[in-house]
């Protein structure tokens, strides 16, 4: 009798996979994301929150947001989220890559970290590797094709790994189409993500130095860069400068007149996959966002860009996907400085 019942059950489960998934899905009701800064900063933090929210909506899962968590020990926040019923914690900052795995081990609640493949553990810790340098390479290519003055600037709000990878990728892309370009690199200050005034000053300086395309990596501070370019373009309407943003999509803002493109980070598909992994019991590996799966990609320009140039960018993308082009992945500040010196010794 028992064997009969279990056989029937097995047949039912096999024949109706949706039933299986429905049973597994009962496990995941709520996911949470922890971000160091405000979820309204139109950048890093907001992107993570918005993407997870979108993923949650698609799956019908609750999403909790713990923002402004800073870089203190977030363990109690994680505990609080778990107490509220979160089944998965997304630790959306490279600074959390140590504390979150430790929490996962002690609490048994799975976490997602970024940029720490060594921390991966089956069923407990998954890692997102963002190959942003690939998309940044494409941005560099576009910049090299579009620059009229031959001078391109990178302005960063500090030198965390996330920015560093993109800086190098961008430089390599620029070098591939315009090795004689002048590349200016300027860091506003350590951790100056919100230093909008500093960003504006620095951007004005690089614009004065002749840059007509600015690749700006900053969160709240990016608006300072945007204002500097707006100002500049008003004064020099004949030779306007353009802006390349990162992470988010600002094409609805006042920047739209000169937003060349943006290195978009789209976590939605990644989050969907991670939640699915958890449900399937295959959680605990490194998930990559790259140009192939469009986890990172270039925002299509709304301003005038020639068809040829954009086509060339697409071709380059194909080459990266196929492996014909490899983009260096350099995340430490010293490495960045050295690589930039190699590529553009005269800058």
């Amino acid at each position: 009798m028992k064997r009969c019942v279990s056989t029937v059950l097995m047949i039912v489960l096999l024949a109706f996979p949706s039933l299986h998934i429905a049973m597994a899905q009962a496990d995941i009701d709520r996911v949470a994301i922890i971000t160091p800064a405000s979820r309204t900063n139109q950048a890093w933090d907001q992107q993570g929150v918005d993407n997870l929210t979108a993923a949650g909506e698609e799956l019908g899962i609750d999403v909790e947001v713990a923002e402004n968590a800073g870089y203190e020990d977030i363990t109690p926040i994680l505990q609080d989220l778990v107490d509220d019923g979160s089944d998965l914690l997304v630790c959306h900052a490279s600074g959390y890559q140590t504390v979150c795995p430790e929490f996962a081990e002690s609490s048994g609640v799975p976490v997602v970290v970024i940029e720490n493949p060594g921390a991966v553990q089956e069923g407990l810790v998954a890692d997102i590797e963002t190959q942003a340098q690939e998309a940044a390479y494409l941005a560099g290519v576009l910049a090299g094709l579009e620059t009229k003055t031959g001078t391109v600037a990178i302005v960063v709000t500090g030198e965390p790994p996330t920015w560093n990878y993109m800086t190098v990728g961008f430089a390599e892309g620029l070098h591939s189409v315009k090795p004689d370009a002048k590349l200016l690199y300027n860091s506003i200050g350590e951790g100056s993500y919100d230093d909008a005034a500093g960003a504006k000053r620095v951007t004005e300086t690089v614009l004065a130095a002749g840059a007509d395309i600015v690749f700006g990596q900053g969160d709240g501070a990016a608006w300072g860069m945007i204002q500097a370019i707006r100002d500049h373009n008003e004064q020099h309407a004949d030779a306007p400068a353009k802006f390349i943003d990162v992470i988010g999509d600002k094409s609805d803002s006042e920047a739209k007149d000169f937003l060349l493109t943006s290195v978009l980070f789209d976590y939605t598909a990644t989050y969907l996959q991670l939640i699915d992994d958890l449900e399937q019991g295959t959680f605990g590996s490194v998930v990559t966002m790259n140009v192939e799966n469009n986890g990172v990609r270039l925002l299509e320009p709304e301003i005038d860009v020639s068809e040829e140039n954009w086509a060339q960018v697409q071709e380059t993308r194909e080459k990266i996907v196929s492996g014909d082009i490899t983009v260096s992945a350099i995340g430490d500040a010293d490495g960045v400085h050295n690589r930039l010196k190699e590529l553009f010794p005269d800058s």
Partner: peptide, 22 residues
């Protein structure tokens, strides 16, 4: 202090095996 400690931990005093400056 902010800038000097940042510089030190990015360079000579940082953990060479980890990309993040710590």
């Amino acid at each position: 202090a902010m800038f000097v400690t940042a510089w030190l931990v990015k360079g000579p005093l940082g953990d060479p095996d980890v990309v993040l400056p710590q």
